[in-house]
Amino acid sequence: MNIFRILGDVSHLLAMIILLVKIWRSKSCAGISGKSQVLFAIVFTSRYLDLFTNFFSIYNTVMKFVFLMCAYITVYLIYGKFRKTFDNENDSFRLEFLLIPVTGLSFLENQSFTPLEILWTFSIYLESVAILPQLFMISKTGEAETITTHYLFFLGLYHALYLANWIWRYQTENYYDQIAVVSGVVQTIFYCDFFYLYVTKVLKGKKLSLP
């Protein structure tokens, strides 16, 4: 395991913790897309089914378990405990526009036509677009709380670090996974516009608001 991979996982974990702490402390999930969080819960569930079939390392098992827990607790806080603060009106992205193409593609383009492999592929494709309802919500309301932008920053950083990890692994182990790499590039591109706004506005102490 290389430094990019570890830092990528830490960024990913940090993003999820930032979101949980934000919701918990403010007792509100205003500005958070419940749909994106449901998609992430589906992503982890369909990807980590190998918890039951393969053992890689203690690290791998523990992290998968923690990621699953974070995702489910977040969904519970949004649709359960703090549902009164949930901005249903602006969380209006049509999920079928993501789920139908992603499902179709995972059946067409995978490494082997087996249930676990198709579900893994589905989770990779879905992860690359799962943030779109959140970005759509921000573009619709025209603003995001600073803490929400920190969440998005660390989530985007995780994707960028994983790209570096794959370049490293390709150079040192000659390993690459085409499905993961292509999806990883796609999702990192989605964050570029946001990264620009984050650096030019949020880091200079301004709130992220769109003209």
């Binding site: 991979r5 996982d9 990913h12 190998d50 393969n54 890689f56 390392s57 791998n60 992290m63 998968k64 990621f67 490494q111 082997s112 087996t114 676990l116 492999e117 893994w120 994983y162 990890n165 390993y175 690459y176 996974d177 085409q178 993961a180």
Partner: peptide, 10 residues
């Protein structure tokens, strides 16, 4: 490329 049993990444 990794197979189903070689996916150690998260």
């Amino acid at each position: 490329a990794g197979s189903a049993s070689g996916k150690d990444e998260l």
